[in-house]
Amino acid sequence: MRLYSSEELLDRELCDIMAQEKHRLGLVSLDAPLISNLSVLSNIALIKQYHGRLSVREAEDIAKVRLKKLHLEDIAMKRNPVLLEVQRFCVMVLRAVMVEDAMVVIDRPFKIMPDLDDTRFIRDVLTSVDDLFQECHIFDYLWNEERYAGGMIHGA
């Protein structure tokens, strides 16, 4: 967890880490939204299709298994605009962990889910997929520190 006192500082740090770890970066951010003309399943499968050169079926099978882990099979064919904020966050996390040896970077999670009071949900989601990524970093503002009072995991 990295907390910054200003947006400028946060953005600069985020850019640095994105540049350094671009080959294993799994970004969860509103600046990297889901592709709106693809289904949830296709959004998750896309990474393996493109980088793993898997077929559509193989990649989608993997995506289905991962959606099941978060009990989200029923939203597999839905698209970004109709998703709830928490669903959108989960799908973004699942997409991020599709990257090989992923380093998950969550950028301002409370911006993605403004209605969330604390990090329990985030922690639960990450725990469910902790076998699928190597590291996880959360970038947020210093004034959200209280929301993280329950503690956060620092990578798998």
């Binding site: 970004l27 889901l34 592709i35 709106s36 990474i47 493109y50 980088h51 997409r95 990257v99």
Partner: peptide, 25 residues
């Protein structure tokens, strides 16, 4: 319109972050 919407929605940025070549994909 599709490409313009993707640009406005920062979806092109998503592809860039996940190292998906926009020309290819």
């Amino acid at each position: 319109a599709e490409i313009a919407v993707m640009k406005v929605n920062k979806e092109l940025n998503t592809l860039h972050v996940f190292r998906i070549d926009v020309i290819n994909y």
